[in-house]
Nucleic acid binder design. Structure first.
Lengths: 352, 352
DNA sequence: GTTAGCACTCGACGACGATGAGTGCTAATC
DNA sequence: GATTAGCACTCATCGTCGTCGAGTGCTAAC
């Protein structure tokens, strides 16, 4: 299996093997790895001295570096990148099926997503990140006013994507059923099937005119419709297992801990990560992304990596799931677990 | 003002002054405080030697203790308790109005609560905790089926407390408007105003019978009603500023950090804290509570304290707000800020 | 091209003493 | 009898210093 037909790599096979060995070792131990270790770890029968020369080359090429003169080597971002792109064995990629993650089928999407985050976090020992789907909602699909109490109306609004919005409207005086019927007719005939752009000022004045004394109700309803269609704000991002970051001492030095945990509390920062992934997947094929170190969209996360995937519930409802860990995270396991989870999400929702 | 009429305290005035001095000093510095410091800090003209004797007494009585032989003293839980109950000056309690917390009026309660948490956290430099209100929802108030698409019905359910639940119901075949009208009538006449207990099996079979071929729809609706009324699950607890805990070194030693931050991620633990406060307020008057150290309902939090308050939106909708900090938190400031926030919440919602 | 050998670097660790804040106790003072 | 000065003692903190060992780069031999 190993031999891929063409390999456009500046590294010869031996260097690749050594680089792989350095990275694997570092992933396991978290300590800089020296030449002697490699000389035993690999099947290459080479002395530490030879390895040292090769490592020196690799350092010059920017794949590894020394934290301080005369200590072992650590992979650079470039090193990790090369590893993830070219060196990870198929075996590593396919640990996925190993453990079954079981998502209990729940009614609410929200509950499912939260659960997914928790599962990822506990299974990987990293931090999970799940965004609610961005929703493609343009057109008004259904609109209804009902009387709930003598002075209270309920507006129910359904827009494309089956997003439902409710709004209670208090009225000055009691409205009789007949009026409600008329208002419903009025609003439905004029608004149904329209998008936000189509609900312009002219239309609104027209409606208010026709509504006679009930302009206020019409205003309230239109506000609610606008909000239901717009509703950019309600993107939520759930996190789980943020404390898992404490397990990796590299991340806890100095003030990094605060920065990182802060980032997990900061919606804007998380959005950056989520959006980066969404954008990339918008263009290309739906695959997992890996962002390593400085590739992360959030500056405070430069010592971390993230494995992301995009889920698609149809109707343009797409969201992102991510696993954030230290740069020396077990990419194979993270990708495997993610893969497994995505399959399950698909099964649950792709019954369409 | 200082002199309260009766003081049923085992401490004479001088001991109280010394205890106050120790605590105030410790709150500020976070370092054990010694006799010499006190001898200057107070208006008592006493030498360090005398203070030492008194402090020795206070230690015996359990108000303060030494982290190790021959270091200054630190307040015990009992000490803090006494301080909060008896020693805090009125001045300290009333810093409240100082800074105006401004809650932007938002439509959604959820948004307001999140904002409140953020405000508290940033203003106090501690961690804020806000629970959504437990909702007193017993009776069905409004129920309506509508056709949204040819094979899709929307059930809108409103229960006491104006909680609205929507449920989409897919049907095998198209249902005409007339049938919907009949179903609406049927469901409303039988279910309206009922509580969960009253919707028993007999009633359900009756309804299904009357519904003829549309039993499935009736089932779905009843399920949704049951869920809307029950809905214990949807208690949410928002936190903000969990990273502020990093600022207090006492809490970060050894493994405590993990425990604490973990607790902030753990809904069950947070519920304990919230419920403890709610329970106490259920019984008595609506005031702020302070839980110190071991008084905290959550074991992982024994090195922390929390100031809680209960907000009441009417209709039995009550929730808890808490400020969690180290035991040496500035209780005065926390209580003041909390007070100020509560007033604002009242203003926003008590327009009833 | 590979390897053995060697001098060198540098962080981690533990021992050591100095420092200083703080105590408890005793004896003198008010 | 309460207060205070004085003193010996405790103990955490901090900087210094030498040791240790993992690891390197370089040179010379294979």
């Amino acid at each position: 299996m190993a031999k891929e037909p063409e390999k456009i790599s500046e590294l010869d096979e031996r260097k690749e093997k050594i680089l792989t060995a350095v990275i694997r070792n570092y992933l396991e131990t978290g300590e800089p790895v020296g030449s002697r270790t490699i000389s035993k770890y690999t099947d290459l029968k080479l002395s530490s001295a030879t390895i040292r020369n090769e490592m020196s080359d690799l350092e010059e090429m920017g794949y590894i570096f020394q934290p301080h003169t005369s200590s072992g080597r650590i992979p650079t971002d470039k090193g990790y990148r090369f590893y993830v792109d070219n060196l990870m064995s198929d075996k590593e990629r396919e640990i996925q099926e190993r453990e079954e993650l079981i998502i209990e089928k729940a009614d609410k999407l929200e509950a499912v997503l939260k659960q997914a985050a928790k599962l990822l976090a506990t299974n990987t020992n990293y931090t999970a990140l799940v965004s609610t789907p961005e929703i493609h909602r343009n057109k008004l699909k259904f609109l209804q006013l009902s009387k709930v109490e003598s002075d209270t109306l309920l507006a129910v609004i359904v827009v494309e994507g089956n997003i439902i919005k409710n709004k209670m409207i208090h009225t000055e005086e009691e409205i009789d059923e007949d009026t409600i019927l008329k208002l419903n007719l009025l609003l439905n005939t004029h608004l149904n099937g329209l998008s936000l752009e189509e609900i312009n000022l002219g239309l609104i004045t027209l409606l208010k005119e026709r509504a006679g004394i009930h302009t206020e109700i019409v205003s309230s309803v239109i506000d609610a419709v606008a909000e239901a269609i717009r509703a950019d704000e309600d993107l939520e991002i759930y996190t789980s297992g943020t404390t898992n970051m404490f397990k990796y001492p590299e991340l806890m030095d100095s003030g990094k801990a605060t920065d990182i945990i802060n980032t997990f509390e900061n919606k804007e920062e998380l959005e950056k990560i989520v959006n980066a992934s969404l954008a990339e997947n918008n263009a290309g094929k739906n695959e997992m992304q890996v962002y390593i170190g400085k590739e992360m969209a959030s500056p405070a996360m430069q010592d971390c990596s993230v494995v992301t995937a995009t889920y698609d519930l149809g109707d343009g409802m797409r969201g992102t799931i991510g696993i954030v860990g230290p740069k020396r995270m077990d990419y194979g396991k993270a990708m495997g677990t993610m893969n497994s989870l995505m399959k399950q999400l698909d099964e649950i929702y792709k019954k369409k």
